[in-house]
Design a protein around this nucleic acid. Structure first.
Lengths: 117, 117
DNA sequence: CAGTTAGTCAACCTAATGGTTTACTTTTTA
DNA sequence: TAAAAAGTAAACCATTAGGTTGACTAACTG
């Protein structure tokens, strides 16, 4: 039995498990974006995109500033840092190992060819 | 529209979004475990735990070796490394920043108090 | 002031999740 | 050889997820 679960990590990893949301985060890495701007690249209703933003917000990965009728979203990197920290425990299994390095490079390669994932 | 999604990342982050599965991974960081051994700490049927193992396996985070009637599971760290690599792009938002460091430390603290999360 | 734009909310739908139980196969053990 | 143990598979159930549409509010713009 797990004494202490981390709903924080649950929410963050769940938010990251969707490609649309990862793409939105990538978009936000370039600076503030309105909900409409975030929605624009996707073949999806605004309401649908708005739900994704809410999931990101709920996970603490994004914050929102309302100006008039426009909602500006900002990346909250601290939560990402927190999630990355989860991996630190497991790093001993791959740091200094060549095959894992290769996995990382391959992943980065895939990422750059994806453009916004 | 996203040209290239990564079903890989989808599956890995989804697998990590469940506390039971994160606890199983933590357990496996100590070495091979049978499905029953993995299931034992949880208040859950063996079939339920077996499903979680399958999700981890499907995400490539765990591999399986069958010996007689026993299925031994092993951590596949390369996939974890790959997931961690996803964060590397965002690191520029927090590396060398004190508040993010604090977030990491807090996360690690929570982790150690959790014991197996 | 009328119309458009930004966005949310609620209702709805379908598919996937996380769990159960029961049945089954295979292997081990008494 | 009979019973128990390890595990999967299938059927089922309730809840969540990801999407839609339509109605609504609030704020710009002409």
């Amino acid at each position: 039995m797990v004494e202490y679960q981390s709903p924080h990590l649950d929410a963050v990893f769940h938010a990251l498990s969707d490609p649309t949301r990862r793409a939105m985060l990538h978009r936000l890495s370039g600076g503030e974006q309105s909900v409409s701007q975030l929605a624009q690249p996707f073949d999806m209703s605004l309401a649908g995109a708005s739900k994704h933003v809410k999931v990101l917000e709920g996970a603490g990965l994004v914050s929102r500033r309302v100006d008039g009728r426009t909602h500006y979203c900002r990346l909250e990197a601290a939560r990402l840092a927190e999630a990355q920290a989860w991996f630190r425990y497991y790093e001993r299994f791959w740091s200094n190992r060549l095959d894992a390095l290769q996995a990382i490079l391959e992943a980065e390669d895939r990422e750059s060819s994806a453009g916004r994932d």
